[in-house]
Design a binder for these strands. Sequence first.
DNA 1: CTGTTAGCGCATTCAT
DNA 2: ATGAATGCGCTAACAG
Lengths: 350, 350
Amino acid sequence: MATLKEIAQAAHVSMATVSNVINGNHHKVSSETVERVEKLAREMGYVPNQAARSLAQRESRFIAIISQAGKGDNILTNPYNAQYIGALTVDLHEKGYYPLIRFTNDFKDIDTDLRGWNVAGAIFNGSYSRYLKQIRSLPSIPIVFTDCYFRVPGINHVGVDDDMGGQLAGEYLGKMGHRKVAFLAADLDSSEVDQHRRAGFEAGLKEYDVELPDRWTFRHADIRPGTEYTEALYQELYSAMQTEDRPTAFFCTSDAIALQLHRLMGRMSLRVPEDVSIIGFDDLPFTQQYSLPLTTIHQDVDQKAHLVVDMLSRHIQDKTLPSERTVVGVSLVERGSVRNLGTKEETARE
Amino acid sequence: MATLKEIAQAAHVSMATVSNVINGNHHKVSSETVERVEKLAREMGYVPNQAARSLAQRESRFIAIISQAGKGDNILTNPYNAQYIGALTVDLHEKGYYPLIRFTNDFKDIDTDLRGWNVAGAIFNGSYSRYLKQIRSLPSIPIVFTDCYFRVPGINHVGVDDDMGGQLAGEYLGKMGHRKVAFLAADLDSSEVDQHRRAGFEAGLKEYDVELPDRWTFRHADIRPGTEYTEALYQELYSAMQTEDRPTAFFCTSDAIALQLHRLMGRMSLRVPEDVSIIGFDDLPFTQQYSLPLTTIHQDVDQKAHLVVDMLSRHIQDKTLPSERTVVGVSLVERGSVRNLGTKEETARE
DNA sequence: CTGTTAGCGCATTCAT
DNA sequence: ATGAATGCGCTAACAG
């Protein structure tokens, strides 16, 4: 394992000079020396020791990616998380950073990671509002929050226009003649994202004088098959769908949930969109593999990752930059999972 | 940021003592001192500097997870990768390690990561055989290879019984009366896993005197919708299916591919299993969300991750351990995507 | 049981 | 343009 010192000796120059060559401070070194040192470094297979570098600089090339998760949860089983964290990882590598990935709800873990590794920056995914005070009292590393709704100034944030997404869904169902609609969230009580999608949905429905009743707001869905949560949801849905007065359409806060719903409806022998319409959210590539052509609200996860990494790296390079907020737009993608119930006249009386 | 030194001063003890307390070498310290130091460390919010620790120990708590990928590829869009890497991440965290995730085919990246961070160990996913010599010439860190078929002794390996999986698929299709079968791989030319699944498949078919013709061996499938590769595959499949003499069943080397195939068959108005049967591989939870009840070869990805992390951590703790090889079993999961073509008598003459 | 000392490999002054 | 010296925070070897 060649070290900087060994290269210095071999090249008959000082460590400082080698360091300058390695780190691209070429204006401080004569071009002959640069060449000689670079050649030697290549030949000796020199790789800088990142621990030593971090220690000397008091900062590492790590970016912490902190995502909401219970203990032991593999959140990458959720296709949205996989797509998003994968995109962040790719983008970070391109900029020469390393992702330090952590799935946790525990501030102690976060604290240990961020301070222990002298991370250059951090990306928080989800609702970490309860730790906000503690997070901000950390040594001043740049942070970008995503998929959350902190009401405080001075933080960097990249979000999705969840309200608009919900509204588009509501308007579309209204336009398609649906007057009895339901809402199915991943975790309405703890997810601000879900709450905003719901609020937007209600706003969209209101344009058609449609109400979203509480009894048709299903607050919690598990995307895994066969769990007790899924069974509980099935029972809830079953009792809602077994009456004459049942919803004709569902808005789900993710495609994964929409597909779960589709499956549960299948168990009740209800067909989509003939018997019940479904509209999802995300429009990830994986959804299109599914046989159901799902009408959904599109968000560009890769673009979101780009924005996050770009924002973060700019704030790392210039710590005086003012805080920023960006909202990524959404759009409706019409496929075939929502049935047109006919003209407004026919259905208006319901 | 409290340092070990500051705690030593506050506690009126030496740095060595604090170090021993922090690292759990309590037998070297009186219990009163342990308590006093621990209390102080807690109060001062002490978090060990991992860079300094790595530097002093010449080893970090990092485990490199290296996965095959082209430049810029987000391999987590593949549900198998997401499930597996997520499971590895969770298991590593539980043992106090950090995953250092890298998607690459470039040995230079790998070298930089492994040596630059003084990783404690590494997990290689996929066919890195061309770099084997270089990998083994690295400073002797424990490595576990997975999903590959190196024919060399002295390496740790956790694999899946791909041959048996293929064989089960072949036997099952034979038993169900299929005599004209096709095979669809992710990337047959570069994936040893695909090659073994195919070999096993042929062996299974042979028991029923069924041949797998070359023209029905589709070597490359992209799981993304709408790409040029997918279109090319569609054309290939189309010409194969438009003749009277067409395969009645497909074995796909992953569920993701099986679902892609299902979709492409749908475009040709061929129904599964009425017009064509499909059997997949993996049986990940996500598959069961799809409306198609896919008959498939089950592998336990979470268990595989457990085995890998366990094997690796044992070899880190005791570098003299002999190399190990483990093969995870597979099983057939019968759902409903393979049609029974009747008794052997009826079909044997074909 | 506790303290002293000497590095780990590098970046960063400040000289020259 | 280059070199010598200092220290980042910690562990480990040794001495007491």
